[in-house]
Design a binder for these strands. Structure first.
Lengths: 145, 145
DNA sequence: CCCGATTAGTTGACAAAATCAACCAATGCA
DNA sequence: TGCATTGGTTGATTTTGTCAACTAATCGGG
């Protein structure tokens, strides 16, 4: 039988986050999962603004602002004003931040491999595609095409 | 391209929980997502103990104990001692609890339908199967067979 | 039968994650 | 110029999750 999808999702993300935390801990990375998500977000899109990341990850901008502030305090991220529009603050990783991002990528790849286990790569791709489709279904479309 | 699976999972559960909260709110159900998970857990397995639910949902037993205490305070759940082993406390829904569970099921079915969107039922089942497989991969097996 | 180990449950303390609202500064536009 | 909008910051709070200590009940071996 198929368990309800909601329960499955809860348990899966829970298990995955636990695996990540363990991986980070053994790698000596002392950041929270949310902070690490931020690092990855900035690494994957340099010069993005906090607002960009907030909308992309669908998270509260206040929450994001605090995460960035903390990461800046740890000298992992720097902010510089946008040359044209000084409301924005472009986000960049410091050297330490970039080095950390690489280590994070390793840990995540490991966790991902462990999670994938014996599943064929095909299934994983399919899983992600379905998940993205479901996200799109859930999101209130302001600009339905 | 495929976004990293971790990000996808985060966003999916986030979007799903938001959809649930909205559904609960419009249905006039004033409980948190975690409390509602508990109600469902008890509804689906009457006479289960707190420990049963903790292990099944992989959640901290202290967390579970508090949720149950609150739900009992709301007259949605009752506890009675196990006839043979008085360490256990069997969990049961009250009449109000059962009535609520039905309304919850409706809201969740709706959210599930919305999330599934145009996706064929086939894909959804496949998704759940893959997710369950990944959970199994992540869980530390104490009894590897 | 007794004693130590185990198990279910409770509680305290806390950390992490998320939410909501108010607010300021810079920008864009009518 | 005046006003709505946007990016960002901060405060307050709620929800969720984690770890540890503790009680009470049960189990199992000597």
């Amino acid at each position: 039988m198929h368990p309800p999808i909601g329960e499955t999702l809860h348990r899966l993300l829970h298990a995955y986050k636990r695996a990540l935390r363990e991986g980070y801990a053994t790698a000596g990375i002392e950041l929270t999962v949310a902070q690490i998500r931020m690092i990855k977000g900035i690494a994957g899109d340099p010069n993005a603004s906090a607002q960009d990341i907030a909308t992309r990850t669908r998270q509260d901008k206040g929450h994001i602002a605090r995460l960035i502030r903390d990461l800046e305090g740890l000298d992992l991220v720097t902010r510089r004003p946008h040359p044209q529009d000084s409301r924005y603050r472009q986000l960049l990783l410091t050297d330490a931040g970039r080095a950390l991002a690489e280590r994070i990528a390793e840990v995540e790849a490991e966790a991902g491999t462990r999670m994938a286990g014996q599943l064929p790569a095909n299934d994983i791709e399919r899983f992600i595609d379905i998940a993205e489709a479901m996200i799109a279904n859930l999101e209130p479309r302001e600009n339905p095409l």
